[in-house]
Design a protein around this nucleic acid. Structure first.
Length: 466
RNA sequence: GGCGCGGUGGCAGAGUGGUAAUGCAGCGGAUUGCAAAUCCGUCAACGCCGGUUCGAUUCCGACCCGCGCCUCCA
């Protein structure tokens, strides 16, 4: 079965062909660490986590690199505002990011390079670009990339270089030869952190670090480069210009871009100041709810972030966990023995088709329906199906919680304690035995007001939070 | 203005040149002391106008609407 990937460069879904058989080298643009991660970041994190998990499940040898930008104007400005050393700021938010990732069940990448640890590679690449005349030092000391010299500029984003020229803003005191040129190296301002270079003290521009880090971690040419929806221009366009000019070879074969997260129909972003951080949402919802919301639509389509959508994601998960609850302690089926499954091949087919997680989920719902409709006597089949379900869930990185705990966690942390609830259930049980249904119903009603739903079965009464 | 993406049932969200998945919600039934959960059944959708075609939601063109990038942003 062939893997199809939507390649932004081709603007089409195409068959994936690796550089090396069964090997995939993947680089994803990570965070600039000056604040907490928001839901948009979560989407990129989760999407590429699902992608790598799936690829590995299909025996692809994935080398996943996701960088950290730990030197940048925003970082220095924020550190300045806080009156702290910039490295204290970045360390703090890197730590916070790792915590958020762990909460969302995002596996760490194989390599997580930081810009400040790759200064030699960055300086080397800038030197090469200067040597090849693709870069120059302006009279303000900055080094700029000479966009006009790179023939295919605009290929990824579909921009026409001439139109970019006419539309470009010209800053006051502009030192560039051409308004489209972008900084590779910024000369140090007084009292600013700096690194020494052949062109004087300074620090790298944003784009060059990804070119240098990807080369160092994966080589001059690699298979897939991913990132958020706002990166094709200018960031990725500039990466292509830098890497291909410096290395003299193709940079990346496939470009993948996640869709936007919107709030009230507008893009959620730091610059619009309409973002929700991951930790904001985790105060109210189980982390799997966020992950499920992301996986519930295709990674490229825009998703709307709203309370309603979170509640719906929770409901969807509840359905899975209700089924899982019936059959605890079953281990997922080994992937190799899943060929006989009626569901798994459909799941794989969907995922191989540009990672269609929504259809993968539909397959899992179909399986749940079959399990739920089986009678008591079909325990073997039930176990088999549940094990298959778990194997698929592991690929999506969902359904990792204990079913009872998940169902009882609900969407809030306030209200009655488990002991209090159990006491009410015991009292209601006695009332039922006494045929005092008025009192039994009164208790249930009282609990409903606290968002506690009771479920009676032959084995007794269980509860969950709405 | 340039480039690009999208408009599918009440909501969310796939997909297809020929009976349009799946989930949530609704309705009817089974089950239950009554519920909940679950099962069975059921209602209901392809922005608008042309074209190609035996046949279009799917392909082509125009239009309307929404969104993204064009500046730091995942």
């Amino acid at each position: 079965m062939t893997l199809k990937i939507y390649n932004t460069l081709a603007r089409d879904k195409v068959d994936f062909k690796p550089i090396e058989p069964k090997k995939i080298r993947l680089y994803v643009c990570g965070m600039t660490v000056y604040d907490y991660c928001h839901i948009g970041h979560a989407r990129v994190l989760v999407s590429f986590d699902v992608i790598t998990r799936f690829l590995r499940s299909q025996q692809w040898d994935v080398e996943y690199v996701r960088n950290i930008t730990d030197i940048d104007d925003k970082i220095l400005n924020r550190a300045d505002e806080n009156g702290e050393v910039y490295t204290d700021l970045t360390e703090r938010f890197i730590h916070a990011m790792h915590e958020d990732e762990a909460q969302l069940n995002v596996l760490p990448p194989d390599q997580e390079p930081r810009a400040t640890a790759h200064m030699d590679g960055i300086i080397d690449m800038v030197s090469q670009l200067i040597d090849k005349d693709f870069a120059y030092q302006a009279n303000n000391g900055d080094i700029y990339y000479r966009v006009n010299k790179f023939e295919n500029y605009g290929q990824l984003s579909g921009k026409n270089p001439d139109e970019l020229l006419s539309g470009a803003r010209i800053e006051i005191g502009e030192a560039k030869e051409d308004p489209r040129d972008f900084a590779l190296w910024k000369a140090a301002k007084p009292n600013e952190v700096y690194w020494d270079s052949p062109w004087g003290a300074g620090r790298p521009g944003w784009h060059i670090e990804c070119s240098a880090m990807s080369k160092s971690c994966l080589g001059a040419t690699f298979d897939i480069h991913g990132g958020g929806p706002d990166l094709p221009f200018p960031h990725h366009e500039n990466e292509i210009a830098q890497s291909e000019a410096a290395n003299g070879c193709k940079f990346v074969n496939y470009w993948m871009h996640a869709g936007a997260v919107r709030v009230d129909g507008e893009k959620m972003s730091k610059s619009l100041d309409n973002f929700f951080t991951i930790r904001d949402v985790l105060k109210k919802y189980h982390p799997e709810v966020i992950r499920f919301l992301i996986v519930s639509s295709h990674y490229r389509s825009a998703i709307n972030y709203s309370e309603d959508n979170l509640i719906e994601a929770k409901s969807g998960l509840d359905r899975f966990y209700q089924t899982l609850k019936k059959c605890m302690h079953i281990e997922p089926t080994a992937l190799v023995s899943l060929s006989a499954s009626t569901y798994y091949p459909r799941f794989v087919e969907a995922m191989n088709d540009d990672f269609n997680t929504r259809i993968a989920l539909a397959v899992m719902y179909d399986l749940v329906k079959e399990v739920n409709s089986l009678g008591e006597g079909d325990e073997n089949l039930t176990s088999t199906l549940i094990a298959e379900l778990k194997a698929m869930a592991n690929i999506l990185g969902v359904l990792q919680a204990d079913p009872v705990e998940f169902l009882q966690a609900g969407s809030t942390n306030d209200g009655l304690s488990a002991d209090e609830i159990e006491a009410y259930i015991a009292e209601r049980q006695q009332a039922k035995l006494d045929k005092n249904y008025a009192r039994a119903d009164e208790i249930r009603k009282l609990l409903i007001e606290q968002k506690i739903v009771l479920e009676d079965s032959r084995e007794g009464t269980t509860w969950r939070k709405e």
